[in-house]
């Protein structure tokens, strides 16, 4: 006989799947927002993005194992370090390639760097799959029959804090205004006294910082290896295509949609079909609305 107070198992399964999807999506959003900013503001498709993410994860792993720093706390030093790395990378290599050839050349340069870094990571850390497991890794909260891992909950909260932070930086600070001005009207920004190459470098650095910070968070939630870098680059692209370019809100929307798509596909169609469905959604979205659900944060000028 059915217990009238006990919710339908199927309904609970759907809620649990949605919860998993939301949590996954929060992390995906953070992992994509740096790519989104760089793509939206600089027009550069940064194929090194996944490398930033994975490097963030390895950096957090090293900090955790060598210095015992909690991976969530590690996001801050990792982000700061990658801000400078990103800045130097953009001004020292990408900008040179753009001025010598074209924007397409920047695509190739970032691709070349991704290959080199992937190889180096394999040499240094071996091609094996790693995880970061702090003491609280295996505890979880339960609400009735719903369950959520503590790490995932923290990961999604950290992600949202970071996304809010970026939204605030972009909308409220003078630095954010310079980024937006440079993205929309580089010439006019230059005439108004903005040091455009410097701002472009800073914007790239900001994107790299967020990518690496997300890697630190991801390292706890998901296993990673040097060869998972292209997954994170593609993921970021899908998030941008779903949500819209250049804004934290677009990344959040796209990330959550992608998280939900992944978890529902895995639960109800089969885990081996998640990639197929993800890419199918990507292709369909490109055909219907390539600018993403929220459009570009920097207008249609580019």
């Amino acid at each position: 006989m059915r217990d009238p107070h006990f919710p339908d198992r199927q309904a609970m399964l759907i809620i649990q799947t949605a919860l998993n999807g939301l949590v996954l999506g929060g992390v995906y959003s953070l992992a994509a927002v740096g790519f989104s900013l760089i793509f939206g503001a600089l027009g550069i498709v940064n194929l090194t993005h996944g490398i930033f993410v994975i490097c963030g994860a390895y950096a957090a792993m090293v900090l955790f194992h060598v210095f015992g720093i909690d991976p969530f706390l590690a996001t801050v030093p990792v982000a700061i370090a990658f801000f400078f790395i990103g800045y130097a990378y953009q001004r020292g290599l990408i900008q040179v390639a753009i001025s010598r050839a074209s924007l397409v050349a920047s695509l190739l340069v970032t691709f070349g760097v991704a290959l080199i870094m992937r190889n180096l990571l394999q040499l240094v850390f071996s091609p094996d799959v790693r995880t970061i497991t702090p003491s609280y890794s295996f505890s979880s909260l339960t609400f009735g029959s719903l369950r959520i891992d503590i790490v995932r909950l923290i990961a999604v909260l950290v992600s949202i804090v970071f996304l809010l932070l970026m939204a605030l930086v972009l909308s409220k600070t003078a630095f954010g205004r310079r980024i937006r001005a440079t993205a929309q009207q580089p010439l006019a920004a230059n005439l108004s006294g903005v040091n455009v190459p410097h701002v472009l470098g800073q914007t790239f650095g900001l994107g790299a910082a967020f990518a690496a910070a997300s890697g630190a968070v991801l390292g706890i939630v998901q296993p990673f290896s040097p060869s998972s870098e292209d997954f994170w680059t593609l993921n970021a692209f899908i998030v941008v295509v779903l949500g819209g370019v250049g804004s934290p809100s677009g990344a959040l929307l796209g990330g959550i949609l992608l998280g939900l798509i992944s978890s529902f596909t895995a639960q109800f169609i089969g885990p081996s079909y998640t990639n197929a469905v993800m890419f199918l959604v990507l292709v369909i979205m490109l055909l219907i609305r390539p600018q993403g659900l929220l459009g570009s944060a920097f207008g249609e000028s580019r």
Binding site: A105, L108, G112
Partner: peptide
């Protein structure tokens, strides 16, 4: 074999920068 990616990446970057 373990240096294939590195070599390919270097060649790509060098070509872009020196022989667009």
């Amino acid at each position: 074999l373990e240096l294939h990616l590195l070599a390919t990446g270097l060649v790509v970057i060098l070509i872009v920068l020196t022989l667009p």
